[in-house]
Design a protein around this nucleic acid. Structure first.
Length: 487
RNA sequence: GGUCCUGUGGCCGAGUGGCUAGGCUGAGCUCUGCAAAAGCUCCUACAGCGGUUCGAAUCCGCUCGGGACCUCCA
């Protein structure tokens, strides 16, 4: 097993990864609230955790990866005010709330599939775990950490913070939090200003509500994750992840709930992915600089000069470490697209490399460096740099400027299979008709014609053939071993 | 306003107290009938000002800029 270190938000340091029950690893990631098209920032988070899931699996762990779908209880404001996001959308579109949930869940799955993300082991929903959430709230009340006011259950943060480190995740000073939170004038039935709801009394017109011992209501936003992680991963598990914006409120409250419920920290390693910006500014609807995944793929957006394939985008994201902000720009995307293509071409070249008896290259060391990169807090950026080194060696060997033994070539293939495909989750996109048999035969014939023309010094014709192929979107490359082509 | 994070070459983006990140772009060379591709070389940076140190982009302080969350506002 590899020695892996992970940056833990709790300690603000990289720590050696020690699972509670190796080889089993429990990982929980906060999934999307399915009330609108999936945000590209969400995609980044889920792609990051897809890599983590893939790498842990690759090095031999048996990972149970749980990622929830929030389909109820997430209000417009995190201060337990405003409407439920799903219900609001349902009213606007005059649909059943579960129609909204279905529509955007399907959309979410489609997008992640295009990005080649593996499905999680379990994908539980908030509405599917109402009982569990009620039970957890009940226990928290019994344990003395929550109270009921007219059918709504609040978590007593002030009381909790006196005996526990409520702000462990962010290191904020609790006194300042109290000071900076304003009074919710008049309507406030909470005891403390930082208190948050575990269960909320539903008004009669509220579309999504369930019976409970406290009357009709619906769950608070934070309780679902505590309830579902506990149900499927136990009271304590290994990794909990999500976007950085979730740490101060959602995750902080989640930890409080778990401790209030069973007296234990829910997990050992908290991992947070950084945000997305567009040309240096944060991606937001109000700034008019946000676009959807399908707009990014098609290029159908004023900010996009062209479309970028899902794999190019995935590769682009992986060139930046998950804890750094990721900046979208046409220039950067195009650079990534070309770099990705370069690796794909090197992989194809690798398949037809001819082995020599000896080699000056140290491929075993290269493989080791790839593992080192991933072991250092999943540093995909450094891993990719090593893959480019591999590409240079492959191309050099193809140009007869270096030599590789059979062992070297096999090891290079293994490196690509393990890291490029399995761990980074990249794939070679097969354009329709790209390598249909008929086209291959036609190309063989056309290239034979061109070869003959060249032998007869009829360069006008050979160039004409080449230009015509370029017009048809096919590029040819003359090499020592003959001519290759690609679309 | 508060807390936290962050500032790297034309662009993107890793990184460690002293040793080439890598990709894209541009220039030159090799190869080639020419081109493309590929290889090699070059453009060699670390926001600014102080400090610690034999030595800092890497540690500390301040200034300026960017971001996240909270507050405010809409």
């Amino acid at each position: 097993m590899q020695t892996l270190s992970i940056y833990n938000t709790l300690s603000r340091n990289k720590e050696l990864f020690k699972p509670l029950k190796a080889p089993h690893v429990g990982m929980y990631v906060c999934g999307p609230t399915v009330y609108s098209d999936v945000h590209l920032g969400n995609c980044r988070t889920f792609i990051s955790f897809d890599i983590i899931y893939r790498y842990l699996t690759h090095v031999g762990y048996k990972v149970r990866y749980v990622r929830n779908i929030t389909d109820a209880g997430h209000l417009e404001s995190d201060a337990d005010t405003g409407e439920d996001k799903v219900s609001k959308k349902a009213k606007l579109q005059q649909l059943e709330p579960m129609e909204i949930v279905q529509k955007y869940t399907v959309d979410f799955h489609n997008v992640l599939q295009q990005f080649n993300c593996l499905p999680p082991s379990i994908e539980p929903t908030a509405t599917g775990h109402i009982i569990e959430q009620q039970e957890m709230a009940k226990t928290i009340i019994e344990n003395g950490w929550a109270y009921e006011v007219d059918g709504t259950i609040y978590f007593d943060v002030e009381k909790f913070a006196k005996q526990n480190n409520y702000t462990a995740l962010t290191g904020r000073k609790i006194d300042e939090l109290f000071e900076n939170t304003r009074d919710l004038d008049g309507q406030d039935e909470k005891r403390g200003r930082l208190d948050f709801a575990l269960w909320i009394k539903a008004k009669p017109e509220h579309l999504m509500q369930w019976p409970s011992k406290w009357g009709q209501g619906f769950p608070g936003w934070h309780i679902e994750c505590s309830a579902m992680s506990t149900k499927y991963l136990g009271e304590q598990f290994d990794i909990h992840g999500g976007g950085m914006d979730l740490a101060p409120t959602h995750h902080t409250n989640e930890i409080a709930q778990n401790i209030a419920y069973c007296g234990k920290q829910p997990c050992n390693y908290w991992m947070h992915t950084n945000m997305l910006t567009v040309s240096g500014q944060k991606m937001s609807k109000s700034l008019g600089n946000s676009f959807l995944p399908h707009e990014l793929f098609s290029g159908n957006h004023p900010l996009l000069q062209k479309g970028y394939s899902p794999m190019a985008v995935r590769f682009f994201m992986l060139q930046t470490h998950y804890r750094s902000t990721l900046d979208f720009s046409n220039e950067a995307l195009q650079a990534a697209e070309k770099g990705f293509e370069r690796l794909v071409e090197a992989y194809k070249t690798l398949q037809q490399l001819i082995a020599q008896n000896s080699s000056p290259e140290n491929i075993a060391e290269l493989e080791k460096q790839c593992y080192n990169a991933m072991n250092d807090d999943f540093n995909t950026s450094v891993l990719i740099a090593h893959l480019f080194d591999a590409a240079r060696i492959i191309n050099s060997a193809n140009d007869k400027k270096t030599t590789l033994t059979t062992t070297d070539i096999e090891l290079l293939k293994k490196i690509f299979n393990h890291f490029f495909f399995d761990v980074l989750g990249l794939k070679i996109e097969t354009e329709k008709n790209r390598s249909s048999e008929a086209l291959t035969k036609v190309m063989d014939y056309v290239l034979e014609m061109r070869k003959k023309a060249k032998e007869e010094k009829n360069f006008a014709l050979s160039d004409n053939i080449r230009d015509s192929l370029i017009n048809a979107g096919i590029q040819i490359k003359d090499g020592k071993e003959g001519t290759n082509w690609k679309i």
